[in-house]
Nucleic acid binder design. Structure first.
Lengths: 137, 137
DNA sequence: CAGAATCCTAAGTGATACTG
DNA sequence: CAGTATCACTTAGGATTCTG
């Protein structure tokens, strides 16, 4: 990925940008699913590993570290042998879950439309560049 | 990146997963910013190019294609010379903007907390594994 | 059990040059 | 003007092996 980030000036400000700016990484492959799997109770590593279907051990660790670093969940180690580690959603993590609601519902309700749009797009590959509309906007 | 996607069964279902499932790519580097730049009026390519600070021409094209493919905006070509192309947010795109609101506000209000959490985490690098808490949850 | 370390591939991205 | 075509680079992520 690139290196310069370049967040600056005030033009083109909008809700989209605000959400992006923070860099909370619901965008990556696993954060959202791990956070979802975590649920409202506290869970151990293996438990999460089994809950998130298809994730590799490595990516579970990486994702959990991100969530911890951002303060979205807590990690408690018990110095026993074999070791035990508990993961639990923090207050901040719970508030995020609330905020996620609308966009999640949006995704659920519009999923079909989007998939249809994609199918149409992929079929017609925009061979004629849509309808040659003369009316400018 | 990996190849198998493996969305399946019903466990660990939650709002997070729903949002992810759809694969609308607010997660990638530019989608959100381009969508924000697009605003509520209709814009030409060059206009968008100037509006989104730091984006390359290539990535603007790629991002716009994604948005078009998902049906989040429309693209109108005028067969003139030099060519003219207008981009405009679709109804679906507008509804997404609505849905984004809460999470955007969440990001804005909790940004400080997250950054602080990151600083703390990066300093202490979890050298002692947090407090050795004996109480299990 | 809960990871850390290593290696590898592929996708995302940027830079640059070219074109209808 | 609005792209397309290449190429090079960086990083996310998977597979595998090792360890306290």
């Amino acid at each position: 990925m690139g290196k310069q980030v370049n967040y600056a000036q005030g033009h083109n400000t909008g809700d989209f940008e605000l959400a992006r700016e923070i860099h909370f990484r619901l965008g990556d492959r696993w954060t959202a699913e791990v956070a979802a799997a975590l649920g409202d109770r506290c869970m151990r590593f293996k438990e999460l590993y089994r809950s998130v279907d298809g994730i590799s051990q490595r990516m579970l660790v990486v994702t959990l570290r991100h969530l911890e670093r951002d303060g979205l969940m807590t990690r408690r180690i018990y110095p026993t042998v074999p070791p035990r580690v508990d993961y639990e959603r923090s207050a901040l993590g719970r508030s995020l879950k609330e905020a996620i609601g609308p966009i999640a519902r949006w995704a659920a309700t519009n999923r079909q439309k989007i998939e249809e749009s994609r199918r149409y797009f992929d079929m017609n590959v925009r061979k004629a560049g849509a309808s040659p509309n003369t009316r400018q906007c």
